[in-house]
Design a protein around this nucleic acid. Structure first.
Lengths: 110, 110
DNA sequence: TTGACATATGACAATATCTAAATATACTCA
DNA sequence: TGAGTATATTTAGATATTGTCATATGTCAA
């Protein structure tokens, strides 16, 4: 009966699981932004960007507002940036660790 | 030439984008754990769980160690739990907000 | 109203991911 | 060595995601 929390969590993580969508969010980190500015910034076809925006909308990560001809997007909850930053830290730490291991191995050959 | 960071981030997020894998990580939050304990805890076929463990391994989220017949898994970087907790907060906040809107709408009908 | 514009949606093929069954591997113990 | 156990890998069909093209929608301005 009850929807498990892990299903919802997985759904939101999968909304984050695409480089283009992460780039869109990085753009929105600066503040709310019109689709016409998002497209050149992230690259890709208009319809493709629009599809990815729809995925972010359905996951409640962003919300949109029509202003005349334009549609402006903004992030629903800025905690999403904390999540992205933490993920970035994880990855950089991992890289750093790998490099240290590599360098110490190289050093021991001298 | 250089691999964009957003590609790596997306890859790790997509490793988190499955309820079974999130359940595995929740189990590993208690500490390192043998596959034979993970399987009954998260449910599902042995081969399926193994498959999902392989995905987590490839994303460097967990690492494994053979101990006799058994294989023990543990989380590589506990920051992954912070990410999961933050995500959980996001979702709960969102639910709370939705409920408040709903309740205030219901209240105004009284 | 008509045309131009910004954005969204639908349809489709290509590709990736998921699950489960069968099989393979690696280890232990008799 | 051979049987038994724990886990991983392979495979195949089902399903989901992706990108592109074509088209639809909604808004403004002439």
């Amino acid at each position: 009966m009850r929807k498990e929390i892990s299903n919802i969590q997985a759904a939101v993580f999968s909304a984050l699981a695409h480089p283009l969508r992460l780039k869109i969010l990085e753009k929105l980190r600066e503040g709310s932004c019109c689709v016409c500015n998002i497209i050149p910034c992230v690259g890709g076809e208009q319809s493709n960007v629009s599809h990815h925006l729809a995925i972010l909308r359905k996951a409640n990560i962003v919300r949109s507002e029509k202003r005349g001809l334009e549609v402006w997007y903004e992030v629903t909850d800025s905690k999403i940036f904390k999540i992205m930053d933490l993920m970035n830290n994880c990855i950089l730490d991992e890289l750093k660790k790998t490099r240290e291991i590599f360098e110490s191995a190289a050093g021991s050959l001298e």
